[in-house]
Each structure stands twice: as structure tokens, then as C-alpha cells.
């Protein structure tokens, strides 16, 4: 496709989609959003690019291959099980770590966030695989 409108729109929408994907990922525990939706949004930003320009160019530009994304995400998911096992809790029970930040206040980091980031990366990889196999780029 060689549409100038689409190409310029894809450039700007890409940044917006990535921003919104990170917002959806980070607030996913208590509000709508989460790893799956964030991953879909982040992958769609690249797919926009693929439609506007050329799917082959996009695949060549990707520094990390889709299967690496999936492997990284699944290993993060497995890694998020470890703290609950070490603390002798139920498997996948949330372990929260409270970090004090000087001005902003208290930040709660926990294994659900790690799990969500793993899901995020896995969904990105799977969506890339779907897209590249549907557009027959090899």
C-alpha cells in the first residue's frame, strides 16, 4: 500500500498506541486493562506500520524475533511463581514489595505485575506471528 495519508497517520498513531498500551499494562490490577490488552495494543502499533508501509520491511526492522518475545514472556511468567514458592505460600499467590519513593509516596511492586509483563510480551509475540504468517512474509 502506498497511501501517504495512511503512512503519516501510522507514524503518529504508533506513539499513541504504545503510550496507551503501557498505561493499560500498569493499571491493570485494579482497573480495566492488563497484560493481554496492553500486548494487543502494542502489537497493533507495529501492525499499523506493516499495513501502511510494507510487511517485509517491518519484519526486517524488528530486532527481536517473535518467537524470542514469546520465550521471554513465558519465562517471566514462570519467574513470577518463584517468590510465592520461596515464601511458602500457595502457588501464584501475590507477593508485594513496598518501595518508598521520596516525593511521590509509596510504590507497590508485586508478582502480579511481573506476570502481566510476561503476558504482555507473549501476546506481542503471538500477534506478530499471526500477522507475519497472514501476510506471507518469510
Amino acid at each position: 500500500m502506498n497511501s501517504i495519508i495512511l503512512q503519516i497517520a501510522a507514524r503518529h498513531i504508533k506513539a499513541l498506541l504504545v503510550l496507551f498500551a503501557i498505561i493499560a499494562l500498569l493499571r491493570g490490577h485494579n482497573y480495566p486493562g492488563g497484560g493481554f490488552i496492553g500486548g494487543l495494543l502494542a502489537a497493533l502499533s507495529v501492525i499499523y506500520y506493516g499495513f501502511a508501509f510494507n510487511a517485509k520491511q517491518v519484519r526486517d526492522k524488528l530486532k527481536i524475533s517473535p518467537t524470542t518475545y514469546i520465550a521471554l514472556g513465558l519465562s517471566l511468567v514462570v519467574l513470577s511463581f518463584v517468590p510465592s514458592i520461596l515464601n511458602q505460600l500457595e502457588l501464584m499467590q501475590g507477593v508485594w514489595l513496598k518501595v518508598q519513593i521520596p516525593i511521590l509516596g509509596e510504590l507497590k511492586l508485586g508478582t502480579p505485575l511481573l506476570f502481566d509483563i510476561g503476558v504482555f510480551l507473549t501476546v506481542i509475540g503471538v500477534t506478530f506471528l499471526f500477522f507475519f504468517s497472514l501476510t506471507k512474509v518469510e
Binding site: 495512511l6 498506541l17 496507551f20 493499560a24 480495566p32 495494543l41 497493533l44
Partner: peptide, 20 residues
């Protein structure tokens, strides 16, 4: 106001179906 985010996402996503 939480439904506004749904609208933002739909407006960003909506025309990818048309384009595809």
C-alpha cells in the same frame, strides 16, 4: 469516567479493520 478509555482505544483501533 473510566469508559472514556474504552472510547480512546476504539477510536485508535477502529480503522485497522477497514484498512486490512
Amino acid at each position: 469516567a473510566i469508559y472514556f478509555d474504552v472510547v480512546i482505544v476504539i477510536s485508535l483501533i477502529a480503522f485497522i479493520g477497514t484498512v486490512s
